[in-house]
C-alpha cells in the first residue's frame, strides 16, 4: 500500500525540479542520540516504537491469558476489566492475542526489511560504484520491479509460496529490495567522484575497502531513514496481506490474521477489528514519526519545508 510512496517522492523530484533531494546537499548529517532526543517528533516516534517492541518482547514471557486458549471468558464479551479488549467467538482474550500478534507481525516486518536493506544496499553499492553496463542493467531491473505496485507484487509472491509468515517475509523482502537499491545507488553516484574517494582510488585502495570505508558511511544515515520508512510499510503490508487471507493463517495470531477474524464479526463484535486495527495504527504512526524525524535530522533542509 505505501510501498510506492517513497518511490513517488524520488521519482517526482527530478520532474518537479525540487530542491529537496534524497541525497542531502553537502552530505547527510549523522544520526546521534542527542539529535533524536532533541527532535520532538523523532523522540515521540522512538518512544511509541519502543513501547510496541516492549509489548512484543513481554508477550514472549507473559500475556494476560494464553493467546490460543479457548473460553478464557464468555464468547464475544465486549471490553471490560477482565478482558480489556474483549473476547472473540471462542472466548479467547483479544489483548493476549494482540500482544502475541505483535511478536509475529514485528518479526515479519523487521526480517523482511533487514533482508531487503542488505540485498538492496549490496546491489546499489555495486551498481553505483562499478557503473557502466552493470549499473545500466541494475537500473533497468530496478525499474521493472518498481513498475509492479508493491502490494500486488507481494500478493503474487505469497500466492506462489503459499500463505504463511515465512512467505510474507520473503515476499516483502523481495518487494522492498529495489527501493533500497535505488536509494543507495543514488547516494553512491553522488559521492563516488568526491575527492576523498578519488584519493583512495589513487592510493590503490581495493574497491571493497573503498565501498566499505569511504562510501558506505555516506549511505548509512539515509539507509537508516529508509529502513524506518520500510518498517512502517512492513507492518501495514503484513496486516494487509493478512486481511486478504494471504498472510499468517488463523488461529496463529498476527495483526493481519486478527484483522481477518475481526472482519468476519464486524457486526457482532466490532471491537475485534477496532482493537487490532488501532494497534496497527499506533505502531505505524510511531515508526512514521520516527522516520520523519530522522529524515529531518539527516537532511535539515527538508525540515524547513515539511
Amino acid at each position: 500500500m505505501n510501498t510506492n510512496m517513497l518511490d513517488a517522492i524520488n521519482a517526482a523530484k527530478p520532474k518537479l525540479r525540487r530542491r529537496i533531494t534524497t541525497v542531502p546537499v553537502g552530505g547527510a548529517k549523522a544520526i546521534t542520540f542527542q539529535a533524536v532526543v532533541g527532535h520532538r517528533r523523532a523522540l515521540l516516534g522512538a518512544i511509541l516504537t519502543a513501547i510496541v517492541v516492549l509489548v512484543a518482547v513481554v508477550s514472549i514471557f507473559w500475556t494476560p491469558y494464553d493467546p490460543t486458549a479457548f473460553k478464557t471468558g464468555a464468547p464475544f464479551s465486549p471490553p471490560d476489566l477482565a478482558h480489556p479488549m474483549g473476547t472473540d467467538v471462542y472466548g479467547r482474550d483479544i489483548l493476549s492475542r494482540i500482544m502475541a500478534g505483535a511478536q509475529v507481525s514485528l518479526t515479519v516486518a523487521a526480517s523482511a526489511v533487514a533482508a531487503a536493506a542488505i540485498a538492496g544496499t549490496v546491489i546499489g553499492l555495486v551498481a553505483g560504484f562499478v557503473g557502466g553496463v552493470l549499473d545500466l542493467l541494475a537500473t533497468r531491473i530496478v525499474d521493472i520491479m518498481l513498475a509492479i505496485p508493491g502490494l500486488v507484487f507481494a500478493l503474487g509472491i505469497v500466492a506462489l509460496l503459499g500463505p504463511s509468515a515465512r512467505s510474507v517475509t520473503v515476499a516483502l523482502a523481495i518487494v522492498y529490495t529495489w527501493q533500497f537499491a535505488r536509494i543507495v545507488r543514488s547516494v553512491v553516484i553522488s559521492v563516488r567522484s568526491r575527492s576523498y574517494v578519488e584519493a583512495a582510488r589513487g592510493l590503490d585502495v581495493g574497491p571493497l575497502t573503498i565501498m566499505g570505508k569511504d562510501i558506505f558511511p555516506s549511505v548509512l544515515p539515509i539507509l537508516i531513514v529508509q529502513v524506518t520508512t520500510a518498517l512502517a510499510w512492513g507492518i501495514l503490508d503484513e496486516a494487509s496481506l493478512g486481511f486478504l487471507g494471504l498472510g499468517v493463517q488463523p488461529p496463529n495470531p498476527s495483526w493481519g490474521s486478527l484483522l481477518i477474524e475481526g472482519r468476519q464479526y464486524l457486526y457482532d463484535a466490532p471491537w475485534l477489528a477496532l482493537g487490532a486495527g488501532s494497534v496497527v495504527v499506533v505502531a505505524v504512526l510511531g515508526v512514521n514519526f520516527l522516520g520523519d524525524g530522522l529524515r529531518e535530522i539527516v537532511d535539515p533542509r527538508s525540515g524547513r519545508k515539511n
Partner: peptide
C-alpha cells in the same frame, strides 16, 4: 499515512 486502508474502510 499511518492508517491502513482497510482500517479506514472498516471505520
Amino acid at each position: 499515512l499511518s492508517m491502513p486502508v482497510f482500517w479506514i474502510g472498516t471505520l
